[in-house]
């Protein structure tokens, strides 16, 4: 961790960077923002850790916990909502055995995220699986994609 953070810290000092960019880069390196990383940044840059946590918890983009191998992002925009995104999300939660507040499976294979709108409303409802956009989704299609991903992981 030390080494990987050191580069970011030096960059920050040199370019008078801002906290958001620094956290975005930290997340790029680790896939999430580890607590130890924040304390380390705070010490090195002589800034209270609360500054970092304040920003990290404010923006939806930052994750304070490790995420799964496969990222499923369900769009909850208005068009998706009126076209039944709730149903897709509920069936996904059931299929992945996720409790109410939980979004990553125990085996860390899947993370289910909800996003306010990805702006692809004319093909609603939309689900993004590992960065690929799927339009006009339904529970059936979703179950098939999920099955394929699960089998993929077993090979």
């Amino acid at each position: 961790m030390e080494k990987r953070l050191q580069g970011l810290i030096e960059d920050f000092k040199k370019n008078e960077g801002n906290i958001i960019s620094l956290l975005q880069e930290t997340q790029e390196v680790f896939g999430y923002i580890p607590e130890e990383a924040v304390y380390r940044l705070s010490e090195e840059l002589d800034m209270p850790a609360s500054n970092f946590f304040g920003v990290a918890t404010f923006y939806a983009q930052f994750y304070l916990k490790p995420r799964g191998k496969n990222i499923i992002t369900a769009c909850c925009g208005t068009a998706c909502h009126v076209k039944g995104s709730d149903r897709i999300i509920n069936s996904l939660k059931r299929d992945l055995n996720l409790a109410d507040e939980q979004n990553t499976t125990e085996d860390k294979k899947f993370t289910l995220e909800q996003v306010a709108c990805v702006g692809a409303c004319s093909i609603a409802p939309v689900v993004i699986i590992n960065k690929k956009v799927y339009g006009k989704m339904n529970s059936d299609k979703m179950a098939k994609e999920l099955k394929a991903l699960k089998e993929d992981g077993n090979e």
């Binding site: 925009g77 068009a79 306010a116 702006g119």
Partner: peptide, 11 residues
């Protein structure tokens, strides 16, 4: 463009 249901700017 944060409004859910809007994608003018993206396009």
């Amino acid at each position: 463009e944060g409004d859910p249901g809007a994608f003018m700017d993206r396009a």
